[in-house]
Design a protein around this nucleic acid. Structure first.
Lengths: 216, 216, 216, 216
DNA sequence: TATGAATGAGATTTCATTCAT
DNA sequence: AATGAATGAAATCTCATTCAT
């Protein structure tokens, strides 16, 4: 499924006008921002890593912050939302009759997404607290659009009698929480531990299913 | 319950040798680090906010990084672990016969803790990714000591037949995830939304209880 | 004789990539280091004297110490040794049949060298005691290479029966001592006294010749 | 012979009002100044080494420079001159009939002096170029008083026909040069090499004697 | 488009000195 | 006399940004 492609490659394909050097700059910036954080990364460091003169960075991005935004914004704007929407259509088109199937599909999809875009996601997570614009964008794209659609989805499965009858946004919160809790523990906090992914995913799904099951 | 006291006050009481100025420096640093992040906060800014000469900071902390560690280390070393241990003793002393009661007590306790120490916790969460020493300390104090004790606890309730029979560390992970997922959504991501705390807590507890319940 | 050229000019010619500003920085640094010593010279002072922004210094030299080394190292590495070697070849090619002629030539040569490079030599003499790396370099370049060659030379004149038969390194030590003793007194300790250079040089040569003469 | 006692001990005995702490400060300062130079030594470093509070240094010495002078001045003023004068009287009282005996006695005396006061002498040599006041004191005490007396002495041995008839100050310069050249090579430049002191001293004396001998 | 030298504002750090206790 | 916290000026160094080539 090409939809799990890396954001970066997608970005490079879409924007064909990008120079070789520009791509290198972006890749170097992602690497450094991800490892040390935006504020602790110097442009000279990025230039060195990209094999480019310092001035070259500023040909393409007026400021260092521009560079950050140039990396993070398209990610949120063009790439996260569409992904989710595609998934949603599948569900809405009755591809996933049961909430459990949807859960399983979503977890697989998100894990693939995470694996292919770890550095970018790190940056997003790490920098959001410090940049109000990012927080704003995040709220707009994720919290509103994505969350809203998932709430609809939850209501859909509630109506089908598969999920307990509590406020739909609480359903979404607890589902998200369990899935991302696993992903964060798995890929960010303890990536070096040896995980039995299959089993943990299954346990997590069962946990959510039991937690939200209507038959009680 | 004095055990929910703020870390900061605890720190100031324990270390009696702290000057008035030193306390001001710490408070100013916490405020700024929390808001803008360590790397984006200048020592001159901290000095100004603390009403102190810049040199004074460096009398007490050899480097800026020392200041960060001076704030974060005692938090992890002296204050998180003990808190948890106290709770554990209560449980072990049969104060909480049912897992559900323990969950409820722990959530209340952690919420109080979070409320009293938000800026400090923000710093911890935000800076851990960028400082290997912090990551190390975190793993040592939290991941090892705390996690281990909770695993024992999970096994205790499993033996009593209150929790489903899956690996105990998965139980702990999913419980943590659900609780901290709520806390993070509530206090870090959407603190300005209006939450019905009582209800959300109850929902979360029910979610976990159903998710892990043995009677199935 | 172009071999008595100034070290500085040699440096500037060899390293063609040096910017105009870089040269000014070097010149300013030499002047200040020579007058007040490395430790007592501030980089802002050097920048001002060089008509350059302070940051410019650190573009070219990572640290202040680097600047010192950038000035002193090439002096020892590239310029002292060659000088001496040239002189030695002359002697070995029988240009100087008599030790006395060699002495006279060497004193003239060294005096010219000193006159053209006083500030640099001051720096070298003044800073060596405080910088182990410099001491090491000095030993390597001067004490080993140069001294060794002079010992050979002494043995050469001893075999010709012109010099008394004592350990060759003692011959070299006493010769050096007498020559540099004069140079130091003349140019460093009492440069403002009025010296009859011709006469003093002649007296010094006679002193050495008598002191080391084999005919006794 | 108690006259070769260490300057430091002499200083501590003479000035009885010196506190224990003061002595420690002086000793610490001498050690640091000698190793790293005055400008590169911080007062806090001295305080730490002396086991004293920073403020204590400034109780006794108004400024850091005062401390340097407090160490170096008495050395020149009270201790070098007297030494020399005593020696001179001995000579004038016909204790040393021959220049050679005088030379030998002087070298022994100076070697003992050097050994007992190395750090102090290092400071003197290293700091003189950077402090005009020191240079002035040095000229006054050494160059004028001492040098002058030695010139008289040289003339004395010239009249006795033991020394060649050249300007007396040249005699003194060359003698000094040869002796201090040895001492500097021996104790400052290559202290770790293994020297046959007896032999080198004898060679040096012979060198000077031949170099200045009147019988030619 | 790309370079990289240069900048200057500002960040971190040092340090001699003062002063209340 | 002694302390050591506090200072603030200055030192070293960093870094985003500009600009001539």
């Amino acid at each position: 499924m090409p939809e799990q492609d890396s954001i970066l490659e997608g970005l490079f394909q879409e924007e064909e006008r990008l120079t070789e050097k520009q791509k290198k700059i972006i890749m170097a910036a992602i690497e450094s921002f991800s490892e040390k954080g935006y504020a602790a990364t110097s442009t000279s460091e990025i230039a060195k890593k990209a094999g480019v003169a310092e001035g070259t960075i500023f040909r393409h991005y007026k400021t260092k912050k521009d560079l950050l935004m140039g990396i993070v914004s398209p990610m949120m704007a063009k790439l996260i939302a569409p992904f989710v929407i595609k998934d949603l259509y599948k569900v809405i088109n009755h591809k996933y009759e049961h909430f459990e199937d949807f859960l399983r599909a979503m977890m697989e999809n998100r894990i693939a997404f995470l694996k292919n875009n770890m550095p970018l996601i790190r940056i997003l997570i790490q920098e959001i607290p410090f940049h109000p614009e990012l927080k704003e964008q995040f709220k707009e794209h994720i919290a509103i659009k994505v969350f809203e659609r998932f709430v609809n989805l939850a209501e859909y499965y509630q109506k089908k009698g598969q999920i307990i009858d509590i406020p739909a946004y609480s359903v979404v919160r607890m589902t998200f929480t369990s899935i991302f809790g696993f992903l964060i523990a798995r890929y960010l906090i303890l990536p070096e531990a040896d995980w039995d992914d299959e089993k943990e995913i299954e346990l997590t799904i069962q946990f959510i299913m039991h937690g939200l099951s209507a038959k009680d």
